[in-house]
Simulated assay, not measured.
Amino acid sequence: MTKMKAVNYSELRQNLKSNLDAVTDDQELLVVHRPKGKSIVMMSLAEFNALQETLHLNRSRTNRQRLENAVENINSKTNLVKKPIAE
């Protein structure tokens, strides 16, 4: 589960580097509360790209079903044997 931190706009500005480091280094989501309920969420580019990929893979019902079947197949195998990686 992704960690989430919330700050107000002033705190974000005062501690910009440490807040951005938390987002990029710790994969933490940062909610920035702004006046009039116009809050935003900051996330790392890697986290955003992973989210976009997940949305893309789940966009079609057929592909989503194939992925679910593959996960069920993997989870049902109790004696998986890993092959050593050739060096």
Rank of each mutant, 00 (worst) to 15 (best):
Q52M: 12
D21P: 01
I74K: 10
H56I: 11
R13C: 07
D25S: 02
V7H: 02
V32Y: 00
M4V: 14
L80C: 07
E47N: 09
I74D: 07
T24S: 07
Q65R: 14
G37I: 01
V81S: 13
T78C: 15
L12Q: 02
K3Q: 08
L16W: 04
V7L: 03
Q14E: 03
D26A: 04
Y9A: 09
Q27H: 06
I40K: 02
T78Q: 15
L20I: 01
E53L: 13
R66S: 05
S44F: 00
H56T: 11
E47D: 12
F48V: 09
I85D: 07
E11P: 01
L29K: 03
T78D: 15
E53V: 11
A6R: 07
L16N: 04
L80K: 09
M42W: 02
R61M: 15
S39T: 04
Y9Q: 06
G37M: 02
E11H: 03
T78W: 08
R61P: 15
I85A: 10
R34P: 01
A46D: 13
N58G: 11
K77A: 06
S60W: 07
K3E: 10
L20H: 00
T24P: 02
A46W: 05
L51R: 10
E47Y: 03
Q14W: 00
S10K: 08
N69A: 12
L30Q: 00
L45S: 13
A22V: 01
Q52K: 13
I40G: 03
